[in-house]
Simulated scan of single mutants.
Amino acid sequence: MIKSMTGFGKHVVQLPTKKITVEIKSLNSKSIDLNARMPSSHREKELELRKLIANSLQRGKVDFNLYVEITGDETTAQVNEITVKRYMEQLRSIAAGDDLRLMEMALRFPDAMKTDKEDIEEEEYTAILEALEGALAEVNSFRSEEGRVLEKDFLERISALERLLDQVLEMDPDRQGTIRERLEKAVNDIKTEVDANRFEQELIYYLEKYDITEEKVRLANHLDYFKKTLRSDDSNGKKLGFICQEIGREINTIGSKANYAPMQQLVVQMKDELEKIKEQMLNVL
């Protein structure tokens, strides 16, 4: 089952004197692009946290926010007055508000608190990992829900492509007859005698050039392969993207060989459906 790269998760863990909050937002990206925002006193754990996030989310543009709020007596922690005042000034320039409200907001920002402790306590780091695990679970759940919506849309559009391909198959005999009549008329308009055998050979040659049998078979196989990949256990957006490229190649070849306006109109509709699939495919994990 496919997953979307779009997701959001938030988890809070309350300790006796601290409140740990982790927020994660994910958008589409070709690879993992992680932006971490956390207190400077916790930067020593950043690489470990980045690795956990990357292993869980795999791909996407990810914003990771870690907030550590003091909710009880903490003798080693002090308000970083200069930093908090700067935050309040910036907030005041954006929107009006009383100083108490601005200060509450500023205290949530990185480096609002400073501490003399050199290491993060084991209990606190365990709480951070718990909050991270909870937020990641929410993000992945969100991604799965979005993936189900995308899967339904893809299946509907693949079905539309299959219906259009069926119409191409039904139309092909008329197309070949029309091309044959057009070539015969062009020869008759020359008003000169031609060798019947030679003409028949040339006619067969041109009809073979316009033959789309192989393209129709390959296109049907690609559509079937897309559905099988879509329903596989793993979400593989890149693989589905490659299949879309092959589908597009066969549709383009049918269009270039059609030489028949009604069939070319069907090809335009097929291209439109495929383009909508490609647009949504950018968000598949």
Rank of each mutant, 00 (worst) to 15 (best):
S41V: 11
R43M: 15
R43F: 13
E44D: 14
E44G: 14
K45A: 09
K45M: 11
L47Q: 10
L47T: 11
R50L: 01
K51Q: 08
I53G: 00
A54I: 01
A54T: 02
A54Y: 00
A54G: 02
N55E: 10
N55L: 08
S56N: 07
L57Y: 00
R59F: 00
K61H: 05
K61G: 00
K61P: 00
D63H: 08
F64Y: 09
N65M: 07
L66A: 04
V68I: 11
V68E: 08
E69T: 13
E69L: 12
T75I: 10
A77E: 06
A77L: 07
A77C: 12
N80V: 12
E81R: 12
E81W: 08
I82D: 12
T83I: 13
V84G: 07
R86Q: 10
R86N: 12
Y87Q: 01
Y87L: 06
M88C: 10
Q90M: 08
L91N: 03
L91T: 04
L91M: 07
L91W: 04
L91Q: 04
R92G: 07
A95D: 04
A95H: 05
A95E: 10
A95Q: 10
D98N: 14
D98V: 10
D99L: 07
L100P: 02
M103V: 04
E104W: 04
E104G: 07
E104I: 04
E104S: 10
E104C: 03
M105L: 03
A106C: 06
R108N: 08
F109L: 07
P110L: 07
P110Y: 04
D111C: 06
A112D: 03
A112W: 02
M113C: 05
K114P: 11
K114G: 15
T115F: 03
D116N: 15
D116P: 12
D116S: 15
D116G: 15
K117N: 13
K117H: 08
D119A: 06
D119I: 01
D119F: 00
I120T: 12
I120Y: 11
E122P: 12
E122C: 13
E122L: 13
T126D: 15
A127R: 11
A127G: 14
I128T: 08
I128K: 04
I128E: 04
L129S: 07
L129V: 13
E130I: 11
E130G: 13
A131N: 08
A131V: 10
L132Y: 01
L132K: 02
L132N: 02
L132T: 08
